[in-house]
């Protein structure tokens, strides 16, 4: 396996999401300019960087929530750029989202939050699967209104909601930002568990040091450019340089 440029992966690596020559401007401000990135399938990819570095903009483009000024995005097996509103809505069913706030339906239980929306949308979710995912993310009170759960539990329910539809990739934007240290650790581990046990790719935007511990790959942005792209070996800390792995390592994490 070889690397050509920061952000890109070798041709033999299975990619779940790619951006090519991406540019995004807001008025006269260019946030991203000819940006290229590949996201490896079945891995936990962390995108970090200072505020204003363009990491959230990149996540929104890759997840189809925003449209690039120019460039191409291929995500979950389809060319996202140029899709119409309806096609995008259908495509989004193949990706999951975890936001900074859990954005759950507070009066409904964890189980209902997983099943109700998808059920009403006509995409029936098996209750047993929903229960198992919630269980694996340590949500014990699955029948109580989620408003009664702690912040960390609610965020893990949000992760379960994203994972239950078995998406190709989950995009998470600062999922630990409003949590305390102990809870951050649990939420980050829950995301890692989704990767390891469900084999769902996860792309997280965060400045959180705790999330770095769980990520397989850390992409660092500054002023819309990739300044660092670190692939971690099991048990090693990021070295600040590109590490080429011959065999992917699965790091088991405990919640």
């Amino acid at each position: 396996m070889e690397h050509t440029t920061k952000g890109l992966l070798a041709s033999d690596v299975r990619v779940v999401c790619s951006g090519r020559d991406l540019s995004k401007s807001f008025g006269s401000t260019n946030v991203l300019d000819n940006f290229n990135i590949d996201i490896e399938e079945g891995k936990f990819t962390l995108i970090n960087g200072e505020s204003g570095s363009g990491k959230t903009t990149l996540l929104m483009l890759l997840s189809g929530l925003d449209v690039p000024t120019s460039g191409t995005i291929v995500s979950a097996g389809e060319v996202v750029t140029g899709m119409g509103k309806d096609d995008l809505a259908i495509w989004r069913r193949r990706v999951g989202f975890v936001m900074q706030k859990p954005n759950l339906l507070p009066n409904f239980s964890a189980l209902e939050n997983l099943c109700l929306v998808h059920g009403l949308a006509g995409n029936s979710i098996e209750v047993r699967r929903a229960r198992e995912i919630l269980g694996s993310l340590n949500i014990k009170d699955q029948s109580k209104p989620v408003a009664t759960l702690s912040g960390g539990e609610q965020q893990r329910v949000a992760i379960a909601r994203a994972a239950v539809k078995n998406p190709d990739v989950i995009f998470a934007d600062e999922p630990t930002a409003s949590l305390d240290s102990a809870t951050k650790s649990l939420v980050s581990a829950a995301l890692a568990r989704v990767v390891d046990e469900l084999n769902i790719s996860v792309v997280v935007v965060s400045h959180d040091e705790l999330v770095k511990r769980d990520a397989h790959r850390i992409v660092t942005l500054a002023s819309g450019m990739i300044t660092d792209d670190v692939h971690k070996e099991s048990g090693t800390e990021p070295s600040g340089r590109v590490i080429v792995l011959d065999e992917p390592q699965v790091v088991k994490r405990l919640v």
Partner: peptide
């Protein structure tokens, strides 16, 4: 690449609809 093995393999026997569980849960709460 890791194989597509999951401890959360979707079961084939559980056909309870989400609607039923929602109504059931609501009634139980009320």
């Amino acid at each position: 690449m890791p194989t597509q093995q999951s401890i959360l393999t979707p079961p084939v026997y559980d056909q309870i609809t989400t609607g039923i569980i929602s109504v059931e849960s609501l009634l139980r709460d009320l």
